[in-house]
Design a protein around this nucleic acid. Structure first.
Length: 721
DNA sequence: AGCACGCCGACT
DNA sequence: GTCGGCGTGCTC
């Protein structure tokens, strides 16, 4: 009697398939995509069958039988499974780990794939009355009730503190109900499109249904979201589902709510801020077709769909679509692959498209749809450079910027200041001996955080108390050098004691409700000046800003990374775009010590289009992406002598491969980080396929060379540090 | 990544 | 004399 084997993807970092004997009693259910429990060494793991049963041909090899089959039906359909296989190949990451990354929480560990009934919260009649009568000092209750007044919310998507919820429940103002499936009808109708939006929508719609990629380039305020909505409506009307990706968790509730108003309550969120159960339920709801639209962050690219018709990647240029550790995939690039294999439509939206997408549009692979006018038709903000050289500065702020702030505040308008640096000051210096607070684990200075009274390393998270006197000479006065968001916030609070100054950076994002409340206050014009980092550039809507100040963008101009200027252009344009949205033209001031830098001038005088044009020409001349393909082999070890020899050995493996260039291994930008010495090897190719071939032949062999060295391969690296 | 096996230092 | 350090080797 012949024996049968199945290949199982096991969640371990190994580049091999693992074959298991299939017990005769289990033959029927063993299909690709089905989860199984398998013995692995001394452990038992949950894996996924990736190859249908095949007859055993090797009589010598010792196989172990699998323990059990978990699913009756494949949990991963062909579509998701082949996406995982493609991603594992392309990013050179073990398939078992890719599959594990695609499965949410409990499902990854073998929990039964059961759809629970869906619980929703809604207002009672008493709740409606209470909302009208509630004193405004009950802020938390009020905003919770207001959220429900707009319509029922899924228990997982109604982010309020448990204490507030139980208080409301006690008073009989809210109730929960179990619903079977999405049922709510849209609450809002569609607004009339502007002529420009109409033209753009026609361009998105033209041609047959099915696979197509459109790069929707639209300046801030040009109404991209309305176009997404139109295509989403059409997709749902055709009985298909849609996936909408956003770069940041904090953007999901906002967008999900807006979509829900128009598309009904089949809109569900999916992101890492949800509990395992919530994510698992949403994942299953998309898979069985009962969730119509999923709004999510990067990891949502692996949500399965019964009938996927449309993917939208909002702010497609955003670097957070690239995972920066472990399985280093790009959700935006996988969206292209997924849409193509599934015959779905893909819209890449941005006010500042990545050079990759512009290049693809230019090459005719993507439709290039432009929305150059703002809906409210005011002129786009003009960016004015402030030459800081030799100027007196108050906490990093020049006289012209401070004067503009004065005028803005006097007029009762709102201002935004952008600085891409958290904390109070990036350096703490001893005035007497020159000592600087440094991280003991990294080649980095510690950042002074005054609010928390701590010195913090932004690279490894290491913290220590702020010393009273210099630890080196014992005598000197310690002075903060440079400026972060905290310091600017404080300087402004001192200058404008009667105004409300708020800070928005990842340090303040601890509690989700806090962010939403702060944004509400900003929109209600209760905040006069908002100081923050790049979070401000990520699509939050501030309708009342009349002044945007960019404290500095100079770092990018000296930045070693080849994408630094592209990023700077995107950030500056995005932040500037926040200015002057509702009727009034905004003012944008950019402080710099490099007012003559040609690319900075180009951006300011002729805009992101012209900058991207120039950068593309530069990339072509230097043979960098998108005109070439890169992979970066990173290595790190506790022992300083280890990474480079490992990379040299890896280079020897790679050198004979045709069609690629292999650079000399070099120490990483920050050589020591979190106690590890790091180095990297850059591989370059003119064609994706030759790079792929070279990596396929060499990467699985690297494990043998790695003695005490941790390594990882990064295909299409986002930065070269 | 786990989890074992295996050969050298400070403890009851 | 044992407990335990983490080097290295393997996982169908």
């Amino acid at each position: 009697m012949p024996e049968f084997l199945v290949t199982v993807a096991v969640p371990v970092p190994l580049y091999r398939g693992f074959d298991y004997l299939l017990p005769a009693a289990l033959t029927d259910g063993a299909r690709p995509g089905v989860r199984v429990r398998v013995p692995f060494g001394r452990r038992h793991l949950c894996g996924v069958i990736v190859r249908a049963p095949f007859e055993r041909s090797d009589p010598v090899q010792d196989y172990r039988p699998l323990d059990a089959i978990i699913d009756d039906e494949p949990l991963l359909g062909t579509e998701l499974l082949t996406l995982c296989e493609w991603a594992a190949e392309y990013y050179r990451h073990p398939l078992g780990e890719v599959v594990a990354a695609a499965l949410p929480g409990g499902l990854k560990h073998g929990d039964a794939a059961e759809r629970r009934r869906r619980e929703q919260w809604m207002l009672t009649a008493a709740g409606h009355d209470a909302l009208a009568a509630l004193p405004s000092r009950h802020r938390a209750q009020r905003s919770a009730l207001e959220a429900l007044a707009a319509g029922p919310r899924d228990s997982g998507e109604w982010n309020i503190p448990a204490a507030v919820r139980s208080r409301l429940l006690e008073r009989g103002w809210i109730e929960s109900r179990i619903v079977e499936a999405a049922s709510g009808a849209p609450l809002a109708g569609a607004p009339t499109l502007t002529a420009a939006q109409r033209t753009a929508l026609d361009a998105l719609e033209a041609g047959d249904d099915g696979f197509r990629v459109s790069l929707l380039e639209g300046v801030t305020g040009s109404g991209k979201t309305e176009l997404y909505l139109r295509r989403l409506e059409a997709t749902l009307a055709a009985g298909r589902q849609a996936l909408v990706l956003v770069p940041e968790i904090s953007l999901t509730p906002q967008l999900a709510q807006r979509l829900r108003e128009r598309l009904g309550d089949g809109v569900r969120s999916f992101h890492s801020g949800m509990t395992d159960t919530e994510r698992e339920q949403t994942w299953l709801a998309a898979r069985d077709g009962s969730a119509a639209v999923i709004v999510g962050t990067r990891s949502a690219i692996f949500v399965p769909f019964a009938r996927l018709g449309l993917i939208v990647v909002d702010e497609e240029h955003d670097p957070s679509y690239k995972q920066q550790d472990g399985f280093r995939y790009s959700a935006r690039d996988l969206a292209v692959v997924r849409a193509q294999r599934f015959g779905a439509e893909l819209i890449l939206g941005s006010a500042t498209p990545s050079l990759e997408s512009l290049y693809n549009a230019r090459a005719g692979r993507y439709r290039h749809v432009r929305l150059t006018q703002r809906v409210l038709s005011q002129a786009p903000p003009e960016i004015r450079l402030i030459d800081m050289r030799g100027q007196p500065l108050a906490h990093g702020l020049s006289a012209p910027l401070l004067q503009a702030l004065d005028r803005c505040i006097e007029a009762g308008d709102q201002a935004l200041l952008f600085i891409n640096r958290r904390g109070y000051a990036p350096i703490l210096l001893c005035h007497a001996c020159g000592w600087r607070a440094a991280c003991t684990h990294c080649d980095a200075r510690l950042t002074l955080h005054r609010g928390r009274q701590r010195l913090i390393c932004h690279h490894c998270g290491n913290q220590q108390p702020v010393p009273r006197s210099c630890p080196s000479c014992g005598a000197g006065e310690l002075m903060p050098l440079g400026h972060g968001t905290e310091r600017i916030e404080q300087a402004l609070a001192n200058r404008y004691p009667r105004q409300r100054i708020e800070r928005l950076d990842s340090d303040r994002l601890g509690r989700r409700h806090e962010l939403e409340r702060l944004l509400d206050d900003v929109r209600a014009r209760q905040v006069d000046v908002l100081v923050g980092t790049q979070i401000l550039a990520k699509g939050h809507d501030f309708p009342n800003l009349s002044l945007v100040g960019i404290v500095s963008a100079d770092q990018a101009l000296y930045g070693a990374d080849f994408r630094a200027i592209e990023r700077m252009g995107q950030l500056v344009t995005q932040v500037a775009g926040r200015a002057g949205r509702a009727g009034q033209r905004g003012e944008v001031l950019l402080q710099t010590h490099e007012p003559d830098h040609p690319l900075l001038k180009l951006l300011v005088e002729r805009g992101y289009d012209a900058l991207s044009e120039a950068l593309l020409a530069e990339r072509r001349d230097t043979q960098l992406p998108p005109y070439a393909y890169l992979a970066l082999l990173r290595a790190e070890a506790r022992e300083p002598a280890q990474p480079l020899p490992f990379l040299r050995a890896a280079r020897e493996l790679l050198l004979p491969m045709p069609g690629i260039q292999v650079m000399e291994p070099i120490p990483s930008g920050m050589e020591r980080r979190a106690g590890f010495i790091r180095a990297q090897l850059l591989i370059q190719a003119e064609r994706r396929s030759t790079l792929q071939r070279a990596l396929a032949a060499t990467v699985p062999r690297l494990a043998e060379l790695a003695r005490g060295v941790r390594w990882s391969i990064d295909v299409d690296p986002a930065d070269l540090f």
